[in-house]
């Protein structure tokens, strides 16, 4: 039996996206492999105290008495692969983060080590510090380029709201130029966040402010994370702006992580509504799946289940589901990562 077309990029990536191993989901009678493009490795000690308290307060008792143990169980590369196994996710993408004000620091080296440990299961996104951009920006770009040269490092992670730099400030456009030159897509957190220390002004959260950067860098792929979701008020937020940008620019992709979680979408209505809007706008071929895990034990699998439910409610076909859960990721990253 010949292999389906969408397994070819998997082979290029060196991944085993076959039906074996229990990975994937059964959607409308069709087996679909899953790639989770949004996972955060880390170390409890590299999270600022204020955020440690914030995170601890969200853990149930008695896990909140030893949040370090709970977090370290799932934040290591081994812990994340365990969460992927539990969730039926074959491949995960680890994000480096430099956000000392909010979520803390997960270095490029940490991500590289995780990818090196599980090269068949994990890919990585590098990032950089922007705290002292005027004097240290050039050096940070050089370090970013070095990190992207490491095996399995396939993209760049940015979070303007967490890192505190304006989306429209051309001083930082060198990051997008580098991404375009190296063929590494850029993931951008859009929308608000309930983390302490976040910059909530629209210039740091509203994807409309990204348009000058997107327009100026057509060779760079921009993945709009969280679709501009309002995590403070649990509302759909700037989805329409994301849709507009995706229609206007072929280099814009969309990622629906975290917004469909129990905490972010208590009514369970927002996630299917968002997926339905994207299908209605004919943009399913731009949608790339991510969970924003591991967060807590079991979250990766739980988010996948919620996504499947939301897709069913949004009347996604099996082809739509495959595009979201793995096909579009392979389309965007397959060639680059396979080199």
């Amino acid at each position: 039996m010949s292999r389906p077309w969408w397994l070819i990029p998997c082979a290029l990536l060196g991944l085993t996206c076959g039906e074996g191993g229990g990975y994937g989901v059964d959607y409308d009678g069709t087996w679909i492999p899953v790639i989770d493009m949004h996972l955060h490795p880390g170390d409890w000690d590299a999270i600022p105290p204020e955020t440690q308290t914030f995170l601890a307060s969200r853990f149930p008792f008695p896990l909140n008495l030893r949040p370090d143990r709970t977090a370290d169980q799932v934040l290591s590369a081994t812990g994340i692969v365990g969460e992927l196994d539990r969730g039926g996710v074959h491949v995960g993408v680890l994000f480096a983060v430099y956000a000392p004000r909010t979520v803390g620091v997960a270095t490029n080296e940490l991500v590289e080590a995780g990818v090196a440990e599980y090269p068949k299961r994990l890919l990585g996104f590098a990032s950089l510090r922007v705290d002292d951009w005027a004097s240290a920006g050039e050096g940070e770009l050089d370090r970013l380029e070095e990190a992207l040269a490491e095996p399995g490092m396939v993209g760049i992670k940015l979070a303007h709201a967490h890192m505190h730099f304006r989306m429209d400030d051309p001083s930082y456009f060198g990051i997008y130029e580098l991404a375009g030159r190296l063929g590494k897509p850029v993931y951008l957190h859009t929308g608000s966040s309930s983390f302490p220390g976040i910059a909530l002004e629209p210039a740091y959260t509203d994807p409309a402010y990204l348009e000058p950067a997107i327009a100026a860098h057509p060779q760079t792929i921009f993945i709009l994370g969280h679709l501009g979701y309002d995590f403070v008020d649990h509302e759909i937020g700037e989805l329409e702006t994301c849709i507009e940008l995706a229609h206007k620019y072929g280099n814009v992709y969309l990622e629906p992580s975290a917004l469909g979680s129990e905490g972010a979408d208590p009514s369970g209505e927002n996630y299917p509504t968002i997926l339905r809007r994207i299908r209605e706008e004919g943009l399913v071929d731009r949608l790339i799946y991510g969970s924003d895990g591991p967060q807590s034990p079991g979250f990766v699998g739980e988010y996948l289940e919620r996504t499947v439910t939301a897709m069913e409610r949004a009347e996604y076909s099996a082809d739509d589901a495959r595009a979201l859960l793995s096909g579009n990721f392979i389309k965007v990253f397959g060639a680059e990562a396979g080199q």
């Binding site: 922007v130 705290d131 002292d132 951009w133 005027a134 004097s135 505190h164 730099f165 304006r166 429209d168 400030d169 001083s171 210039a203």
Partner: peptide, 11 residues
């Protein structure tokens, strides 16, 4: 013009 605090401050 249009400068956020972060780009104007050198630690």
């Amino acid at each position: 013009p249009c400068a956020g605090a972060e780009i104007l401050y050198a630690p």
